[in-house]
């Protein structure tokens, strides 16, 4: 079992993740070309201006209006993306298979970042359940997506601390990570891919056409 999920399944999920992402982006570009009014209005300057205002915490009005939500959102996304990349044990696996490695974060830091992901995800869950404007637009799929995103961190945390049977947790951890990778291009987790482009388009339209700010 372990051999299967840590061998062929890893290959499959990475191929699906990378291939699927490329496919989604290529089809987006094709559709944008078909729509005719997208590319002529794109402006690098205003795309970057918009992106900068939305990837720096508190640089946009809505972020300042909701400071707590802003901190939680940034903490969640930063930890979610960086932890798996710079985790020592992940690096060791890369080294074992491909003889490549890069900087790794101290295990204690990774541990804290994992806890941050789990707790911020719980915050998102509560927010979904409690705030009427969010609950109104919540579907089962929203809970599913949140579960997919947080499952690798919960299982990883449990596996690392070996509070539950290590081998089972490890297999569950690997599977949940693979599910997440596969899900990114084909679910609304693809906001990871599209974010840059939706922002860039709106930034261009607001900047180049409308001569105003979009933050």
């Amino acid at each position: 079992m372990y051999e299967f999920v840590s061998g062929p399944l890893v290959w499959i999920s990475f191929i699906v993740f990378i291939g699927g992402s490329i496919y989604r982006l290529v089809s987006m570009f094709k559709l944008a070309d078909k729509e005719k009014v997208i590319f002529p209005y794109m402006s690098l300057k205003y795309s970057l201006r918009s992106l900068i205002h939305w990837i720096i915490p508190f640089a946009s009005t809505n972020m300042r209006r909701r400071p707590f939500m802003t901190i939680i959102t940034f903490a969640f996304h930063i930890c979610l993306v960086l932890t798996p990349i710079f985790l020592l044990s992940h690096n060791l696996l890369w080294y074992q298979s491909w003889k490549i490695s890069w900087w790794t974060m101290p295990e204690r830091t990774a541990d804290i970042m994992t806890i941050i992901v789990i707790f911020t995800a719980i915050f998102f869950l509560i927010r979904r359940l409690v705030l009427p404007e969010v609950r109104f637009v919540t579907f089962l799929s929203d809970y599913a997506l949140l579960t997919v995103a947080v499952a690798p961190f919960i299982t990883g945390f449990l596996a690392y601390h070996q509070w539950l049977p290590y081998k089972t947790m490890l297999i569950l951890h690997i599977i949940s990570g693979e599910i997440m990778l596969i899900a990114i291009p084909f679910t609304r987790l693809s906001h990871m891919l599209y974010f840059v482009f939706t922002r860039a388009y709106m930034g261009s339209e607001f900047g180049a056409v409308r001569n105003s700010k979009d933050w």
Partner: peptide, 13 residues
Amino acid sequence: AARLKVYLQTCVH
């Protein structure tokens, strides 16, 4: 085309 599809796929509710 693109805007509709991408907007629907990107919105995280």
